[in-house]
Design a protein around this nucleic acid. Structure first.
Length: 431
RNA sequence: UCCUCGGUAGCUCAAUCGGCAGAGCGGGUGGCUGUUAACCACUAGGUUGUAGGUUCGAGUCCUACCCGAGGAGCCA
């Protein structure tokens, strides 16, 4: 029996007979030599066919093969500089599993809408494969980061009885005879688990029913949210720096090949060091105005403002101390300047916008009740949340990191829809 | 939701002033002993998004609708 191996491990099998199970990526011929490009999900290898006479069995099989036909090839692994990837397989034996008829994605350019309609097949293409390999590494790095630092994983519910921050952007669904909503953040629940476990994180999908249609938005996206009891703003600024540096380092180390496939220039990522530049909202507004953009104190940043800020610094930037009225009800006011809150946004470099949003939460029981009232939130839905301030309340802080935006930034790809296997976009839920 | 642009062969696009519907890729057939999105020759392939209208004549002009792309607001 020939050993079944994966293409990513091919280098350890030089001059040995192996079996590869995969699909035909492309084929070429030149006289009495034929080339198959076989992919198996972990890579692509060139397989060569030689036959003295053209009517040979291998050539008959070659002629039948079409793009994305499934096949098993057996042969000897050879080092050869002429082969893409440096290794090729001298085929002795070829089994056709199924002939694919008229595979729609040809080795030519296609429009985005066509590729999105065929997302289930587009995943097989080399660049999409590279992006999602990096996604898996990114998620693994994030989990390792928190697990190794003693954070407890706490899964927060996806079906929730009320809004986290407001009610306009939630997907409503039926929960037997009452209404329920798809979670847009695990944060409020994490404030409860942090009081039970000290430091926690949740990792899961979140849903926003906003009618936004930009390269930075998904309707369904994944977010990791750490929350730490007794932590203040400064603590989570440092945590966010350490997290981003760790994932950059890990992705550069493990996914060099995939970043090459994506033609990602990694120099800007390699240059990133801590501490990141820190600006308070007041100063950020001043810097944006100096660059000639229009913004007034009290306004939230738009996409051009975020791009402007990240262009000024050659690194991710921590923006803090925002006006209270543009931030969520639970944000802790600054003691020295109560009209601003101890919020944190980390903006990516290279114009990729907000990666992280978070801050220090209100721990005073009277203040939290006052804010709930001011924001016209239904008090009965927040009784449990108010309890957290009644029974051993402490200062606490946390943030959320968007997985897809982080991945888009790491890969430097233009649109977030390529960073998740099956993106949910405005009005688009197929496939 | 608003603004801008687009819809022609399976795919990506061209078609001058309103005047014969075209090419590359992919498919099929044949050729080539090291190809790199291989190449060369031949070949099949069309209700021009839908519905109206103007005109001797509409892919092209007008109206409505449908679908898509890019951007804005909001956000991670």
């Amino acid at each position: 029996m020939t050993k079944w191996i994966y293409i990513e491990d091919i280098a350890s099998y030089e001059d040995q007979d192996v079996e590869i199970r995969g699909w035909l990526y492309n084929k070429r011929s030149c006289g009495k030599i034929r080339f198959l490009l076989v992919r198996d999900g972990t890579g692509i290898i060139q397989a060569t066919l030689f036959t003295p006479e053209k009517e040979g069995l291998l050539f008959q099989k070659y002629d039948q093969l079409t793009q994305e036909s499934s096949l098993i090839v057996r042969g000897k692994v050879k080092k050869d500089n002429r082969a893409p990837g440096g290794y090729e397989l001298e085929v002795q034996n070829l089994d056709i599993i199924q002939i694919a008829q008229d595979y729609p994605i040809t080795p030519k350019e296609h429009s985005t809408s066509f590729l999105m309609e065929h997302r289930h097949l587009w995943l097989r293409s080399q660049k999409q494969n590279a992006i999602l390999q990096i996604r898996a590494t990114l998620i693994n790095a994030i989990r390792n980061f928190f697990d190794d630092r003693g954070f407890r994983l706490m899964d927060t519910p996806i079906l929730t009885p009320s809004a986290c921050e407001g009610t306009t952007t939630l997907f409503e669904t039926q929960y037997f005879d009452q209404k329920a909503y798809l979670s847009q953040s695990g944060q409020l629940y994490n404030e409860a688990t942090a009081m039970a476990f000290g430091k926690v994180y949740c990792f899961g999908p979140t849903f926003r029913a906003e009618r936004s249609k930009t390269r930075r938005h998904l309707i369904e996206f994944w977010m990791v949210e750490p929350e730490i009891a007794y932590a203040v703003l400064e603590d989570i600024i440092e945590l966010s720096e350490d997290l981003l540096l760790f994932i950059i380092e890990r992705v550069l180390e493990k996914r060099k090949n995939e970043l090459d496939i994506l033609e990602r220039d990694t120099a800007p990522l390699e240059k990133i060091r801590k501490p990141f530049p820190r600006v308070k909202y007041d100063e950020a507004v001043k810097r944006i105005k100096e660059k000639g953009l229009d913004i007034k104190w009290g306004e939230d940043f738009g996409a051009p403002h975020e791009t402007c800020l990240s262009d000024i610094f050659d690194s991710p930037v921590c923006v803090t101390h925002f006006p209270a009225k543009i931030k969520a009800f639970y944000m802790q006011p600054d003691e020295k300047k109560p009209e601003v809150v101890l919020g944190l946004d980390v903006l990516a470099s290279e114009g990729y916008g907000e990666l992280i949003g978070g801050g220090q939460r209100i721990h005073d029981p009277n203040l939290i009740q006052q804010k709930i009232k001011e924001h016209n939130l239904p008090r009965e839905a927040y009784e449990w949340y108010i309890d957290l301030r009644k029974y051993g309340s402490v200062p606490h802080s946390g943030f959320g990191l968007g997985i897809e935006r982080t991945l888009a930034w790491l890969c430097k790809i233009s649109h977030i829809r390529q960073t998740i296997p099956f993106p949910r976009l405005l009005y688009k839920i197929y496939p």
